[in-house]
């Protein structure tokens, strides 16, 4: 491999008080690739993304974006690096004091790549890309259903033409049909933009659909990774237990002890 990975994480550690969340995580994401991290709730999937975005400082380890180390950057450098990223948050995290169109065009307006006036047209265009009519542009996030909020969040995530998009549990809390709509949209918009994708989920249907490669996070480490279509054949007991959703197996839930 001569290509520089888009994201390269090595030996990442993060603890909260006595609780060890990440314990030597290694992960590479190649340009244009879609990687999905699977793992149970509270295993540190969101923490991994937040460390990469600089929303949290890891205790130790390195994170490189396009070969540049991004741990411990100052605010201005961080802002420059974060221009490459965008993120669809687990709760969509729309700004509820702003109408939908201002949410969608927030990044480009903040960067001054568009004026407020152009921003509205841009927002309507991006909303159309995620299958939403222009009328929603003037609604407020609280007037939308969960699935619609996710789609607006997706429109906001693609509005700045990011190189890398993070998806934090894009289908959690949605009905299966809406979940599938979101999965299709994720595949469509990342392909159109040619972006690199890093998603985290515990929804296997979603992982199979959007991933080129799947990595499983357990006890702070990536314990298995491979092409999405090979996951059913893998002989890792942990992965098998997780994808088949069995209560019995090597992964023990804290409640059962």
């Amino acid at each position: 491999m001569t290509e520089t990975p888009k994201i390269r994480i090595r030996d990442l550690h993060k603890t909260f008080g006595p609780k060890v969340v990440l314990d030597g995580l290694d992960l590479d994401v190649m340009p244009g690739e879609s990687v999905v991290i699977i793992g149970g709730s509270g295993t540190g999937k969101s923490v991994t993304l937040k460390c990469t975005l600089g929303l949290m400082e890891p205790d130790s380890g390195t994170i490189e974006v396009d070969g540049e180390s991004v741990v411990g950057l100052n605010a201005r450098e961080r802002e420059r690096v974060n221009h490459k990223f965008s993120m669809l948050f687990q709760s969509a995290a729309l700004f509820d004091s702003l109408p939908v169109w201002e949410n969608v065009a927030f990044g480009p307006i903040a960067d001054k790549t568009v004026t407020r006036k152009q921003g509205k047209d841009l927002a309507i265009e991006k909303l159309a890309q995620v299958g939403m009519p222009a009328e929603v542009a003037d609604l407020f996030p609280s007037e939308l259903s969960g699935g619609m909020q996710k789609r607006v969040g997706l429109a906001r995530a693609i509005a700045g033409d990011p190189e890398i998009i993070f998806f934090d549990e894009p289908t959690t809390g949605l009905d299966p049909i809406m979940a599938d709509v979101i999965n299709d949209l994720i595949v469509k918009v990342t392909r159109e933009l040619g972006s690199t994708g890093l998603s985290i989920t515990h929804d296997m249907a979603s992982a199979r659909k959007i991933a080129d490669r799947i990595a499983m996070l357990y006890q702070g480490k990536i314990i298995w990774q491979g092409p999405a279509d090979s996951i059913d054949d893998c002989d890792n007991e942990y992965v098998q237990q997780f994808i088949n959703g069995r209560a019995d197996g090597p992964i023990e839930m804290a409640v059962r002890k």
Binding site: L53, L55, N82, S91, A93, F95, A110
Partner: peptide, 21 residues
């Protein structure tokens, strides 16, 4: 209440990812 809600619903994090301090 407003900033607290924005914090716990990740809206503050979202601002940072949209290159707004």
């Amino acid at each position: 209440a407003e900033l607290g809600t924005m914090r716990v619903t990740e809206q503050v994090d979202a601002l940072t990812t949209l290159s707004t301090n």
